[in-house]
């Protein structure tokens, strides 16, 4: 029982690390500025109509309609779990192909994937398992997209105000 509680504590820490990684990279690459495709813009406007903020809604629409840094973090964790550093780099290549399929320049996804590869590999020296980072990323995306859309979009919009200055 003790070791399973340790695994769940590791999952919570990994969720915080993944959350910081993908939010920082997405906001650095200006995802909340505008919707990349028509569908992302429409999702942002519907979230705003429910009571959220517009720029946070745009970022949630962009996450839905194109693989960005969150997908890069998840697939890099899967790659490191299965095959170590080369698996993470293969995942970065696949994320880039997916970005090109979905009409996106692909900087955010590829950067997030490569940085997450090295972060996850570094945390394995502290006793973490890459499997815990997969669960942590699922938990992190559930806090953004799955719990409350108005609150999450207001939080993202506030972070975007900080980035824009």
């Amino acid at each position: 029982m003790d070791i399973s509680l340790l695994a769940f504590a590791h999952i919570l820490v990994a969720a915080a690390v993944c959350w910081l990684n993908f939010i920082v990279i997405d906001i650095f690459f200006r995802l909340p500025e505008a919707g990349g495709v028509v569908g992302a813009t429409a999702i942002g406007k519907h979230i705003e109509a429910k009571g959220g903020a517009l720029h946070g809604g745009y970022m949630m629409g962009n996450i839905v309609s194109s693989p960005d840094a969150s997908a890069g973090t998840l697939l890099a964790s899967c790659g490191v779990f299965i095959a170590g550093i080369p698996g993470g780099l293969l995942a970065a290549l696949l994320v880039y192909i997916g970005n090109r399929i979905c009409h996106d320049p692909g900087y955010a996804g590829t950067t997030g994937c490569i940085s997450a590869t090295f972060i996850v590999y570094g945390f394995t020296f502290l006793g973490f398992s890459p499997a815990e980072f997969i669960a942590g990323m699922v938990l992190a995306i559930a806090t953004i997209q799955g719990i409350s859309h108005p609150r999450a979009s207001r939080l993202l919009s506030r972070l975007w105000e900080v980035r824009r200055g």
Partner: peptide, 13 residues
């Protein structure tokens, strides 16, 4: 994952 994203993108658009 890419297939699911493409599906969401097409449905929304």
């Amino acid at each position: 994952f890419v297939g699911s994203t493409l599906e969401s993108n097409a449905i929304a658009s």
